[in-house]
Nucleic acid binder design. Structure first.
Length: 157
DNA sequence: GGCATGATTGTTGGA
DNA sequence: TCCAACAATCATGCC
């Protein structure tokens, strides 16, 4: 459906510009391309509805860098539209950065990671509690779940 | 109007 | 240990 539009154009360009730099990237790319539909569906459709409370993956150092890079890139290139161009430029820039320059982004990523681990631990706890309660008392678990939800909201904040 | 897609790298989780 | 999936972003295009 949507794939028929920019996919062909951009994809063509991308293949010409960058066939496959990394082995993993190429695989990821291929997987994303071929399973993009199911992946997206899983992501937005099933997964989202399945575990809406599941903590999202923490942003890697590269993504932290991209957050800032996008702003800068948009300011310097207001005519450039689309995330693909920004992603490409960001990737190249990221590679050109030295370890020292990447350090602050990695530090931020590490922070997010630790937070993610906490949230995940809590999330796993709740999952076990819910499963356990469900086996014993479904009615009782209901009220407990409600309380847990409240806690989650607070944690999220 | 709404949703999928495009690119990028890194990280995580599962098999 | 390896691989696949997913994380953010948003203009664009199709149905």
């Amino acid at each position: 459906m949507k794939g028929a539009k920019g996919k062909g154009t951009v994809k063509d360009k991308k293949e010409v510009l960058k066939p496959v730099d990394d082995k993993r990237v190429g695989k990821r790319k291929a997987a994303t391309k071929t399973e993009s539909s199911s992946k997206k569906q899983t992501k937005k459709g099933k997964l989202a509805s399945k575990d809406p409370n599941k903590p999202k993956k923490p942003a890697s150092a590269f993504f932290v860098f991209m957050e800032e890079f996008r702003k800068t890139y948009k300011l310097e290139n207001p005519d450039v539209k689309g995330v693909a161009a920004v992603g490409k430029a960001g990737g190249e820039k990221w590679k050109s950065l030295s370890n020292a320059e990447k350090a602050p982004y990695e530090a931020k990523a590490a922070k997010r990671k630790s937070e993610y681990e906490k949230v995940m631990a809590d999330y796993n706890k709740k999952q076990e509690s819910i499963a356990d309660d469900d086996e014993e008392e479904s009615d009782k678990s209901k009220s407990e779940e409600d309380e847990d939800d409240d806690d989650e909201d607070e944690d999220d904040d």
